[in-house]
Design a protein around this nucleic acid. Structure first.
Lengths: 260, 260
DNA sequence: CGTAGGAGCTGACGCTGCGTCAACCGCAAG
DNA sequence: CTTGCGGTTGACGCAGCGTCAGCTCCTACG
């Protein structure tokens, strides 16, 4: 007693194409091939199909299903491995959701500023990585080419008015840095160290930043940026010039060194 | 001033192959093509690349990125749509994680019973869908061919000893049903209705069951099963025969009708 | 001046799991 | 004889590149 490919397909809730595919990859050969080459499936094949469909439904790939069914792999172990993969995938998506949400929030906060020349104004004038290759090389050496490129990509990918919105957000921080510096505060003193903590937390909030998911940027990253603040006048301007930036750098350096 | 494909690739943290691909799909043509066909990228191209990489990092597909960059699509809207997709994907994975975990738990609870003939004993003798096509058609009409096939696949996919373990778990429930019936309880009375509630909750706990994720099976599903309990003696046996199964059916029917 | 090495180029296949034609065959009813 | 259904075997398509393969051009070196 056996059944045609359509009967099996309808019952199992798949298409005949799927069954032919399973045959082609050796996962489920028909129990016999009748005259004219038509595939016939008996009870044993049906049971095998049902197990295949269960494992597929749980998300296993066809090769993993094949390994389980041919007993080369323990079923429980295959499922545990698969579970690990699923969890990693979910975490990855969670992180991506967070990034998209923050990017959206930044976008919407920046509405109404007009979007003329969004790709040119600041991107080309203020932060074009090709213009300050010395710092790029510095930073690349410290925390990896790839991470630099990604962090940089985030910033420039924002477009001009998003960058401006972002800069407005950080304006308070910068103003506080400048005030502290002009008041002659000690870089390793309480006031500057508190600012350094805020600064690091702010950095960690930038998607794409190394340490973003850990809530804390790595020391090398902070140090690399601190140096760049001083070396690049376009950054230094945010902190009241070279001397102000040097104050920020000293404070940040002390801060990371106090927190191994 | 422009740069070679390798310079751009290294800076951006991608491979030259990726840049050629972006060129091939029209996403990022080089700003000019030098003698010998070598690609050259200028500042504008770099900025465009950075925006591409940001959107890619957020998980958008290349076509969506293209639509955003050519201004045919609002960036915020594209991101919101994408966010919806990400959330659905995460929920799907969450459900799959749940299914795999429950399947694993069932597997591990069934250890030590031996695995001989796991594919034949009960799958072939007790629950082979091809043997009782009348009920299959009934149930298919009520809650859809696909769902039937999937629920059925889960059961038969478990293998014989998992099915036995599962039956042991449900043994209490069955025993209580039989006791209530033999005691002459009223199907719509308090005792039988409490059992019906337990029964529905048990059903909802089966991965692959319709309503599994909602924690409650749909009425049609419960009714379809209830009818099958009576019509199929192999099910009826679990409840003390046809009459006992009819008692269960009446109780379940009343239960679902009391809960729209 | 020949050559080795490095960078770039254009195809083209591979991966995952089938969906979707396309072209053809066999059998039974009208 | 035609129509129609159900079956067959290819083969392309998809997403985003990784990875050869085979060829050209330029430069530095012996």
């Amino acid at each position: 007693m056996d059944w045609s490919i359509q009967e099996v397909a309808r019952h199992a809730g798949v298409t005949s194409r799927t069954l032919r595919h399973y045959d082609a990859v050796g996962l489920l050969p028909p129990s016999r091939v009748a005259a004219g080459g038509t595939r016939r499936y008996d009870r044993t094949a049906i049971v095998r199909l049902q197990r295949i469909l269960l494992l597929r439904e749980l998300g296993l790939g066809l090769d993993a299903v094949g390994r389980v069914l041919t007993e080369q792999t323990d079923e429980a172990r295959a499922l545990r491995d698969h579970l690990d993969g699923l969890r990693r995938e979910r975490d990855r998506i969670d992180r991506q959701i967070g990034s998209v949400r923050r990017t959206l929030a930044a976008l919407e906060a920046g509405l109404g500023t007009g979007n003329d020349d969004r790709e040119t104004i600041m991107a080309a004038d203020m932060l074009d990585g090709f213009d300050h290759t010395e710092h790029r090389e510095e930073v690349e050496q410290r925390w990896g080419r790839e991470a630099y490129a990604r962090g940089d990509a985030w910033w420039r990918g924002l477009g001009a008015e998003q960058q401006q919105a972002f800069l407005r957000e950080v304006g308070d921080l910068n103003a506080d840095w400048q005030a502290a510096w002009r008041d002659g505060a000690d870089p390793v003193g309480e006031r500057a160290q508190a600012l350094a903590g805020r600064h690091a937390a702010w950095l960690a909030g930038i998607p794409g930043t190394p340490g973003h998911t850990e809530g804390r940027p790595p020391a090398e990253y902070v140090l690399g940026l601190a140096e760049m603040y001083v070396a690049d006048e376009r950054f230094a301007a945010n902190y009241g010039g070279r001397d102000g930036a040097a104050f920020v750098r000293d404070a940040l350096t002390a801060w990371v060194e106090a927190r191994p």
